[in-house]
Design a protein around this nucleic acid. Structure first.
Lengths: 238, 238
DNA sequence: GAGTGGTCTAGACCACCAA
DNA sequence: TGGTGGTCTAGACCACTCC
């Protein structure tokens, strides 16, 4: 409120941070109930929630819809230059990956996808929706759109495995040039639902447009990450 | 509240969005006062603010600290592979760049900077803090850290010009390999103050570690972008 | 069924910006 | 100086989770 007497929210944030730094609240730990915390800090639930939302914005805590607040685990480093897939990347960082298939079907291509994949209007594409976890925590919702011309019968395969490997083994296709776009935004309804977070929580949208090693445009994806789950890294050479 | 009767917040968001889509609220326009809007939507200020914060998270509106809410202009596309600087990039997208020098001095290198620049502990570095605008809107707070060995007398120059050009003209140094790290997080106090946004607003932190064309580690920067001002794009080849 | 988070109401005071 | 946004209080009801 005043400059010399920090706001209540700031004080609460500082107190919680201090606990986390000193290892009293470990990554993944559940915080006490909001009402309990608001009593502890002698304030209202609204104010306490403001503080938690601040910490959430900074990536220190996160919430699971209607389940409560938890201490955020460290971010995954997403190295764009490495040609590896989610599972390899997560495991290489000593953590446990998991992928769950949500849906897979041929649909009329949305306009954005036609544009990205260079398809004619009203083409069909194969859409694969999945969600992924790191150490059990939901962190990523992905929609893949495949150009069906290159992947006949792809829906018959096990689609919870890394697509990279499926492409290689079943179709002899490997990724070549990849175009990335990254954009901080709120998670849209679809992604928020799949990740079990309250709609509108902050997220990072990453879109990829993938060519194969022969330069053909083979698929694109739309990834929605929890904003605090990831650190993107890349090296650019002249 | 109920699934079939959308929440008040959702309804307000939808109404404002609709106005923006139909060009009744143009980019940069100031929204009416919160109290006025809350009356218009027949709700409390708290609820109305929730809605605005949602739209802010999605990058549709933004606020200037204590000045009100405004409609967000389109994002700047930050193409990592292009070796151009802020001014060139902004102008190339038909917009007006502006850079303001906040401070420039030699200081004892913070630990992080020692690490990034490969300096011995307790080395000196030159720190240059600046803030930048697009079409008059504050969007970026940057701290540059230069290895003083390569830039004797750099503080004597005009530091509101692009450093890239200063490096080239005064020192014959050009960028070579650049390492980027991107991380969605809240704006820290320093950046929030410089950008005149309320502390804790969402932002995108980009750090760069820059080598010159001969592979020497010459400087690094710490950029804090308004989260809704930017879209990062890059192409990765095998 | 108890307790939780999600949502909302109806106010209040303050510091700061603009006039 | 008036009005603005920033912050905070003290409640309330609901849907959902978890026991």
């Amino acid at each position: 409120m005043r400059d010399h007497a920090p706001r209540a929210v700031t004080a609460i944030c500082a107190a919680l941070e201090e606990q986390m730094e000193h290892g009293l609240l470990l990554a993944g730990a559940k915080l006490p109930a909001e009402r309990q915390l608001s009593e502890l800090f002698d304030t209202t639930r609204i104010t306490l929630r403001d503080a938690l939302v601040q910490l959430e914005a900074r990536g220190l805590v996160y919430r699971e819809d209607r389940r409560g607040w938890f201490v955020s685990p460290p971010r995954l480093t997403y190295e764009l230059n490495e040609r590896s897939h989610f599972h390899a990347m997560v495991r290489a960082q000593g953590r446990l990956p998991h992928t769950e298939l949500l849906s897979a079907q041929a649909i009329p291509a949305p306009a954005v996808v036609c544009d990205r994949l260079g398809l004619a209007p009203l083409s069909q594409v194969i859409r694969i929706c999945r969600r992924r976890r790191i150490d059990g925590r939901l962190v990523l919702y992905v929609e893949h759109y495949l150009n069906p011309a290159y992947f006949p019968g792809v829906l018959e395969h096990d689609l919870s495995q890394p697509l990279t490997e499926l492409y290689a083994h079943a179709y002899g296709i490997a990724y070549g040039q990849v175009r990335f776009e990254m954009l901080p935004t709120a998670l849209p309804l679809e992604a928020a639902g799949a990740l079990k977070v309250s709609a509108g929580s902050p997220g990072l949208r990453i879109t990829r447009i993938n060519h194969d090693s022969r330069g053909r445009l083979i698929d694109c994806d739309l990834e929605y990450w929890r904003h605090d789950a990831i650190r993107v890294v890349t090296t650019v050479s002249p």
